[in-house]
Write a protein that binds this DNA or RNA. Structure first.
Lengths: 240, 240
DNA sequence: ACCGCATGATTGTCAGACAATTAAATGTCT
DNA sequence: AGACATTTAATTGTCTGACAATCATGCGGT
């Protein structure tokens, strides 16, 4: 795979060494790393270099640091929330930097979201259904700002994927849905388009209520088509 | 959203400020940030603090640094590869640290993978099909180590998701498949289980060749069931 | 025109210092 | 003895100043 990384900086090498120790279990969650001074000694570098290495790991939420006596760097417990936040940052930037067309992103997002329909139909709970109905009601308010409408849209889809009752699936899907938000925010929602979306959301909620996976699938596909249409019209308008 | 982060360290604050500038476009790909000395002046901190902030951003692949005259920190172009590598690191740790059951992880992974079947059936290319057939042939070699078998398995599924012809979808799916590898490595493949997997892989390739999305779906579901069975037997064996 | 070399800008690393924070140990009062 | 205040020691956060390594540029010599 990767051979000799010719000349990566010392701080990178140290960060890689510690990361490897965490990933393959030589350091467990909650373990305390040696103090910065000790690490500096062990690796034969200055404290500043060790600190840069630790900051790299902290940026990936692999470790957390506490100050004071008996403080130090601890292997962090990566929660679903933290992991999702990082995934969203990465995915958002990926979409923004690679000139991904709205259509391709949308296609991916809805293809992914449809992967929860079968499980959701089988396992749906009243809690997520209630959330979905609540968000639909909110989306029907004409005074809602575009931003709030988008946020409610995300909450609605989040509830849908949570209905599948699989945390790992929720993590992946919620991440991909949220990462799309900057692109979705390009769309200014007219009252007519909002009504159309609310209609489709209602269809999704009703189908989920009835445990009809195929109908959820169909409604999501319709939503995908409509969203792409909206995106195209925005692009055309912007061209002028 | 988040208001006053009471007492986050200066390096975190500076990293957040720069990250925000990148995410919402005030800094574009390829732009050069001010030198460390200038940033230190601007923010009224020492160079060491600025450096720690930059290392945090570098760890997320948001920037890259070059040495020498006219070097400095540049806003990085986040490639699909880099993004996927980060996603895999995060997801792998998430699975490892949260005592996710093999069954739940498997269920999520195959649910996600099935989201590419419709598009893959519609757009499949000879290139990906060839890759899949090649990997199947490799997997039929009885002398293959468990590790190599797993690697080939990943390559096979990677080719399947690439068949959908949507880079964004490939990024998400390949990431979730790869993140499962440490869990998959727990399974020691007997010759009989390898044969069963090769059979199902062949069915997937044949169905993709025939553009039969439903059949791919069914084969993936069968593979999911078989994998979970294997996982269970490993757990039982380990209990003794 | 070509080669080599100095030069300046910039990051990478180091050493040492001090401030801030925090848990534990110690002391003090009731 | 127990509650409360103080000291202490360990540790991270930050600063300062320095030097080494790297590299585009331009200058000078041939």
């Amino acid at each position: 795979m990767k051979t000799a990384k010719q000349t990566s900086s010392l701080s990178v090498q140290i960060a890689d060494a510690i990361r490897a120790a965490i990933v393959d279990g030589r350091l467990l969650v909650g373990d305390r790393l040696p103090s910065e001074a000790e690490l500096a000694d062990q690796h034969g570098v200055s404290r500043a270099t060790v600190r840069e290495a630790l900051k790299r790991l902290a940026a990936q939420s692999l470790i957390r640091t506490e100050r004071g006596a008996f403080g130090g760097a601890f292997v962090n417990h990566l929660s679903y929330e933290e992991a999702r936040a990082q995934q969203v940052t990465t995915s958002t930037l990926l979409l923004g930097m690679n000139a991904v067309s709205f259509q391709v992103a949308c296609e991916a997002r809805y293809a992914l979201e449809r992967s929860c329909t079968a499980l959701a139909a089988a396992r749906r709970s009243d809690a997520t259904l209630t959330t979905m109905r609540t968000e639909i009601a909110r989306q029907s308010d004409p005074d809602l700002t575009d931003e709030a409408f988008c946020a409610s849209d995300v909450a609605f889809h989040r509830a849908l994927v949570d209905s599948a009752g699989n945390e790992v699936l929720s993590y992946h899907l919620a991440g991909s849905v949220e990462a799309m938000q900057p692109l979705m925010n390009m769309i200014t929602f007219t009252q007519r388009s909002r009504a159309e979306i609310v209609t489709l959301h209602t269809k999704i909620a009703d189908s989920l209520d009835a445990r009809d996976a195929a109908a959820i699938d169909a409604a999501l596909t319709a939503l995908e088509g409509y969203t792409i249409t909206l995106g195209k019209s925005v692009l055309e308008q912007r061209a002028r």
